[in-house]
């Protein structure tokens, strides 16, 4: 399992991904009409909306994940069960019965 992220790290990452996410959404809506027109041309242009949603999922998904961590909403770690350790048996040594 990945190492636990501190709240401070989560806040920093949230700000970084938040800014990137805002830039992506800003770009899409600033050029909304030409983007929508080009993306709906069909055929090979189908790759464009698909690539866009992958980009949005990575950037905005990372922002969302860090946002919940920064707010202290984390998954509960499953209780660690202690593995029963076998009692150490004394090492067998060859002895001489003189």
């Amino acid at each position: 399992m990945a190492h636990e992220m501190t709240k401070k790290q989560a806040v920093m990452r949230m700000i970084g991904f938040g800014a990137a996410s805002a830039a992506v959404f800003g770009a899409i809506f600033h050029f909304a009409n030409p983007i929508t027109e080009i993306f709906s041309r069909g055929g090979f242009y189908a790759a464009l909306p698909i690539a866009t949603v992958f980009l949005v999922s990575y950037v905005h998904g990372s922002f969302a994940s860090n946002l919940w961590t920064a707010l202290g909403i984390n998954a509960k770690q499953p209780a660690k069960t202690l593995q029963p350790t076998a009692a150490k048996r004394p090492e067998v040594r060859a002895t001489l019965n003189a």
């Binding site: 899409i28 809506f29 909304a32 983007i35 929508t36 993306f39 709906s40 041309r41 069909g42 055929g43 242009y45 189908a46 909306p49 698909i50 866009t52 949603v53």
Partner: peptide
């Protein structure tokens, strides 16, 4: 998307 039916703004 190949038929050009996706409205990326809504998505």
């Amino acid at each position: 998307a190949m038929h050009g039916m996706v409205d990326i703004r809504l998505t």
